[in-house]
Design a protein around this nucleic acid. Structure first.
Length: 269
DNA sequence: CGGGCTGTTGACTC
DNA sequence: AGAGTCAACAGCCC
C-alpha cells in the first residue's frame, strides 16, 4: 500500500534517475489501467522527453515534453528501472528509453497510468481535487479544514480530497500518537487536540520518509524500504501491549476499514 | 481447496 | 455533507 512516504521517495528516485530520458517504446499489457485508448496513449507519449517527476498524495506526476504521465499505485506495485535483459515477469506497462534502459510498472488492478495533455491538469478529476500533501500542512491549515465539519476523524484523514497521502497503513499510529479514537467526531476536537494531531501526522510519516518507505514496498532499484514492523507502535499488533499503558491493542471495524487502537489511550467518549 | 480479509478509489444511494 | 455499499484484483492466512 504505497502512501505518502513511499510515493515521495519513489518520485525523488525517479526524478534523479529518469530526468532527461526519452521514451522510445511503450508496451501496454493492461489497457484497463489507462484513461485513454491504448493507441492514443502510445501516440501521445512516444518520443516524449522526461522533464521532471513530482508527487501529490499517492500520485506520481511525470512531466514530459508531450504532456503528463500520472501514476497511482493503488494497493501496491513496483516501478522498476531495469534493462531489457532483466525484465520482471510481472508488469502491466513497459517504457523503453533512448539509452537502452526500461521502466517496468506493475500494480494490482486498482493502479492507474493516466495521460493528460500539457496544460490540462485541471481537467484531470482524480488529481485536481486532491488536498494538500499531509506533511506540508500546518496546525492552522488543519484547524481551518476541520472547522465546521462533522463525521469521524479517521475518514477525514483518509479522504484524499481533504488531506493527501495518508492511507490505512499509517493512520493507526497517527491516531494513537494523537490519542484520538478513529470514530471521534471532528466537531468535538479542541485546539490542543488538533495541534497534537498535526504533530502526530509528522511523527507518523517522517520516520518512514527518512527510511525510504515501508518494508513491504520496493524502490526504483528494487531495494526494500527500511521502515519496518518494529517502527510501528499500534498498527497490525492486535493483542499485543500498548507501548504506553500496556493494555491489549484491539482491532475494530470502522466503516469499511479496520482500525487498530489502544482502548485505554484512545477512548471514544 | 476455499473462504475471508486487505488495500484504493469512484460511483452510487440514502 | 456524510455514511454506507459495491466493484475491480492478487496474495496471504487459516
Amino acid at each position: 500500500m504505497p502512501e505518502l512516504p513511499e510515493i515521495l521517495n519513489r518520485a525523488k528516485e525517479m526524478k534523479e534517475a529518469l530526468t532527461g530520458k526519452t521514451i522510445t517504446g511503450i508496451e501496454i499489457l493492461q489497457p484497463k489501467c489507462l484513461n485513454v485508448p491504448e493507441d492514443a496513449f502510445t501516440a501521445a507519449l512516444h518520443g516524449a522527453r522526461l522533464i521532471d517527476i513530482t508527487y501529490r498524495g499517492k500520485w506520481i506526476f511525470t512531466e514530459t515534453s508531450k504532456g503528463w504521465l500520472l501514476f497511482c499505485m493503488g494497493m501496491g506495485g513496483e516501478i522498476l528501472l531495469v534493462s531489457r535483459e532483466s525484465l520482471p515477469e510481472k508488469r502491466r506497462l513497459l517504457f523503453d528509453f533512448d539509452d537502452g534502459t526500461c521502466l517496468s510498472v506493475n500494480f494490482w488492478w486498482f493502479g492507474y497510468a493516466h495521460y493528460v495533455p500539457a496544460g490540462m491538469l485541471e481537467g484531470h478529476a482524480m488529481t485536481a481535487k486532491l488536498g494538500p500533501n499531509a506533511i506540508d500542512l500546518s496546525s492552522e491549515n488543519l484547524r481551518e479544514m476541520l472547522d465546521g465539519r462533522r463525521g469521524g476523524i479517521k475518514s477525514f484523514l483518509l479522504n484524499q480530497s481533504r488531506v493527501a497521502g495518508i492511507g490505512n497503513a499509517y493512520v493507526h499510529d497517527i491516531l494513537f500518537m494523537a490519542r484520538l479514537h478513529p470514530l471521534r467526531s471532528i466537531n468535538t476536537l479542541i485546539d490542543t487536540e488538533v495541534n497534537g494531531l498535526m504533530e502526530a501526522i509528522h511523527r507518523g510519516l517522517q520516520p518512514s520518509i527518512d527510511k525510504g518507505g515501508a518494508f513491504y514496498e520496493v524502490g526504483l532499484h528494487g531495494q526494500k524500504g527500511r521502515f519496518s514492523m518494529e517502527d510501528i507502535l499500534i498498527g497490525y499488533r492486535e493483542g499485543e501491549s500498548c507501548p504506553d499503558c500496556g493494555a491489549a491493542i484491539k482491532k475494530i471495524k470502522t466503516g469499511s476499514t479496520s482500525s487498530f487502537i489502544c482502548p485505554v489511550c484512545q477512548p471514544l467518549e
